[in-house]
Simulated scan of single mutants.
Amino acid sequence: MKRMVYVNEVDVTSTAIASGLLIGDAHRVSPTANVLAVQVEDPDVLFERYDFSEFSVFSMHPSPELPPIGIHSFSYHERPIYVDSLNVIGASTSAVIQIGGVDHVDSFSRIKHIRRVEEEQ
């Protein structure tokens, strides 16, 4: 699966946290992300350090793989791919924007969000 890809214009505003823009064919894409987001109400308060091992979400096994589904499709592997214009606002947390083909995608993200707010009086 080797094809030429011709792209006239790509405008991507943002990719973040294990995400990317791929142009061309790929055999396997495996973006992964472990994110620990801590939000504090008072920015002057220094918060404690956290470790991924403290939270079970980061050690859980992924759910079993789903069986493949059959879809009616057609492809022209011997012809190049032409894209005039692609406009993407953003892709985040193990997302892939791809112009081309891919055989396997194994993508996952684990996110733990902690909010530290002051108690109401």
Results as ranks from 00 to 15, higher is better:
residue 3 R to F: 12
residue 88 V to G: 05
residue 26 A to T: 11
residue 18 A to M: 05
residue 11 D to R: 03
residue 70 G to F: 10
residue 91 A to S: 10
residue 64 P to G: 08
residue 120 E to T: 13
residue 69 I to C: 03
residue 28 R to C: 12
residue 49 R to Q: 09
residue 76 Y to R: 13
residue 3 R to A: 11
residue 60 M to A: 13
residue 120 E to R: 10
residue 76 Y to C: 11
residue 13 T to A: 04
residue 82 Y to K: 07
residue 47 F to Y: 15
residue 120 E to A: 14
residue 38 V to F: 03
residue 59 S to M: 12
residue 69 I to E: 13
residue 84 D to V: 13
residue 70 G to C: 03
residue 68 P to V: 11
residue 5 V to C: 03
residue 67 P to W: 02
residue 5 V to S: 03
residue 9 E to P: 02
residue 45 V to R: 14
residue 38 V to S: 14
residue 52 F to D: 00
residue 27 H to Y: 14
residue 11 D to E: 06
residue 45 V to G: 11
residue 59 S to R: 07
residue 79 R to T: 04
residue 56 S to A: 14
residue 85 S to C: 08
residue 86 L to G: 09
residue 110 R to T: 00
residue 62 P to W: 05
residue 48 E to F: 10
residue 31 P to G: 14
residue 111 I to Y: 05
residue 90 G to D: 01
residue 49 R to Y: 06
residue 52 F to L: 07
residue 114 I to F: 11
residue 98 Q to G: 13
residue 32 T to S: 09
residue 119 E to T: 14
residue 114 I to C: 13
residue 58 F to S: 01
residue 24 G to P: 04
residue 50 Y to Q: 09
residue 54 E to S: 08
residue 72 H to Q: 09
residue 97 I to R: 06
residue 92 S to H: 08
residue 88 V to C: 09
residue 4 M to W: 01
residue 23 I to T: 11
residue 89 I to H: 13
residue 114 I to L: 15
residue 85 S to L: 06
residue 69 I to V: 15
residue 78 E to R: 05
residue 116 R to T: 10
residue 70 G to L: 09
residue 6 Y to V: 06
residue 33 A to W: 01
residue 98 Q to A: 12
residue 40 V to E: 06
residue 90 G to F: 00
residue 62 P to K: 12
residue 20 G to K: 03
residue 32 T to W: 01
residue 29 V to R: 07
residue 36 L to W: 13
residue 109 S to L: 00
residue 30 S to D: 07
residue 109 S to T: 12
residue 11 D to H: 04
residue 32 T to G: 07
residue 17 I to V: 12
residue 63 S to Q: 05
residue 51 D to C: 05
residue 57 V to H: 04
residue 45 V to A: 15
residue 63 S to C: 00
residue 10 V to C: 09
residue 85 S to A: 08
residue 17 I to M: 08
residue 35 V to A: 10
residue 76 Y to D: 12
residue 37 A to Y: 04
residue 120 E to M: 10
residue 50 Y to W: 10
residue 113 H to A: 14
residue 11 D to K: 03
residue 26 A to K: 04
residue 89 I to W: 04
residue 74 F to S: 10
residue 16 A to P: 03
residue 7 V to W: 00
residue 37 A to I: 07
residue 21 L to I: 14
residue 77 H to Y: 02
residue 83 V to G: 04
residue 99 I to Y: 07
residue 107 S to Y: 05
residue 9 E to C: 05
residue 68 P to S: 12
residue 94 S to D: 09
residue 108 F to I: 01
residue 70 G to H: 14
residue 109 S to A: 15
residue 84 D to Y: 10
residue 1 M to T: 14
residue 114 I to G: 15
residue 45 V to P: 12
residue 39 Q to K: 13
residue 4 M to T: 11
residue 63 S to H: 02
residue 106 D to G: 02
residue 16 A to H: 07
residue 81 I to Q: 02
residue 65 E to K: 02
residue 40 V to R: 13
residue 31 P to Y: 08
residue 92 S to Q: 09
residue 64 P to E: 09
residue 110 R to D: 00
residue 90 G to W: 00
residue 39 Q to L: 06
residue 83 V to L: 14
residue 116 R to V: 15
residue 113 H to V: 13
residue 60 M to T: 11
